[in-house]
Design a protein around this nucleic acid. Structure first.
Lengths: 222, 222
DNA sequence: ACCTGAACACCGTTCAAGT
DNA sequence: ACCTGAACACCGTTCAAGT
């Protein structure tokens, strides 16, 4: 979307790869919880590492392309439609969260390369639309849209940082986290010790929705 | 703080390094915008890379120690005192933002290792205190405290991701960003094209404070 | 208990060379 | 225009060996 796909019109054996194929392969690796390294992607394509430099000037460029594909996977169309502006934003935010939680090694990419692709542009535009519908002036709508992205990406990144190597179902992760938190000394951190059951759920969808609700409440006109 | 420093009582040449020294050195590298790699830290200490494994079981353990030092540098004491709960939280959030912005390679560490050190515990406790002062019940105070950390770390991480390799003063970064954004086609992304001047400031302290204000408004009891 | 030498299995990237 | 061979300068980590 927004990109004129020049590959489609090409034919024959002149070009055995496309940059889309390379991004596809990187996504495959992310699905397997493997890092989308230049060498890893090349190996999976049956090609030498330096071949990829014909399509991307460096690792950062490949990462930007991957990021944009992930944003597209989260389905920016969720931000449009006849539902309330809050529902639209919450639906997209949760979808993006799930796309990234399912691919733990993908989250870091958002913090090494800027989001400047076509899907990122579309997401930004639709967020502006939603917040404008909510009655925000354009300046506040712009700030609110960015705040939502910060919230989503920050949440997912911290959740992944806390993930044990193997991963696991949400309920198991909460239990495991509660176990670690229960070691806290109540005489040193009394308030923390008294709220261990909540802190154990900091990486859950419930907490995610609570945070997003708070942020949206604070963004909507008073 | 909270750690019983066993090194202090040791004497003589039996132990030429301490884990604190290693973290110091890692901080030095971060100050120079260099990655705190095992090999880099070891080289700077004039020691072989594998020496560090006497003090930390693996890279992640070193990273956890670094993270905790950075949280301490941001000065959790800013969360206490006689100022309003909002001021205390805003002051600490801005301090942490600056500690990390000044050390761009530090931000990523928060997303590869969990925050489980003593300074992290202290920050959590003080945040709970502040939100309790604000009138929140313990459960909401816990959720709100985590939301603030998500907001701060997410903001800084995205700001660093958008940083050009050299860095730069805030005003220059805004101008450079505006230049990139001005290429947007108004017929494709009309709302975005109409708010380029705001989007250019997404990584500034102004936007940071706006977001935090919104979040805190949404957290405080209605 | 602490540090090293040597090695292993990885990275991203460059450059000259082949088709 | 596209791909490769070979190399360079990096990583984290392990393991046997030395003191």
């Amino acid at each position: 979307m927004f990109i004129v796909d020049t590959q489609v019109t090409r034919r024959g054996p002149k070009r055995s790869l496309t940059s889309d194929q390379i991004v596809d392969t990187a996504l495959d690796l992310l699905d397997l919880a493997e890092p989308p390294s230049i060498r890893g992607v090349a190996a999976r394509l049956g090609v030498r590492p330096n071949t990829l430099y014909t399509y991307f000037p460096d690792r950062a460029a490949l990462e930007r392309a991957i990021i944009d594909r992930l944003l597209g996977l989260a389905d920016p169309a969720l931000l449009t439609g006849r539902r309330s502006w809050r529902r639209r934003i919450e639906d997209f935010a949760c979808a993006l969260r799930e796309v990234l939680l399912r691919r733990p090694r993908a989250v870091g990419l958002f913090f090494t390369a800027p989001m400047d692709g076509p899907a990122a542009g579309l997401v930004g535009e639709r967020l502006l639309e939603a917040f404008t519908t909510a009655g925000l002036p354009p300046e506040d709508a712009s700030r609110a849209g960015y705040a939502v992205m910060v919230q989503v990406l920050g949440s997912v990144a911290l959740a992944v940082a806390d993930l044990p190597p193997g991963g696991g179902r949400e309920a198991d992760l909460v239990a495991e986290r509660r176990g670690r938190l229960s070691l806290i000394d109540p005489s040193l951190l009394p308030l923390t010790a008294g709220t261990v059951d909540i802190a154990a759920t900091w990486n859950t969808e419930t907490q995610f929705r609570w945070q997003l609700r708070a942020l949206l409440d604070g963004c909507a006109p008073r």
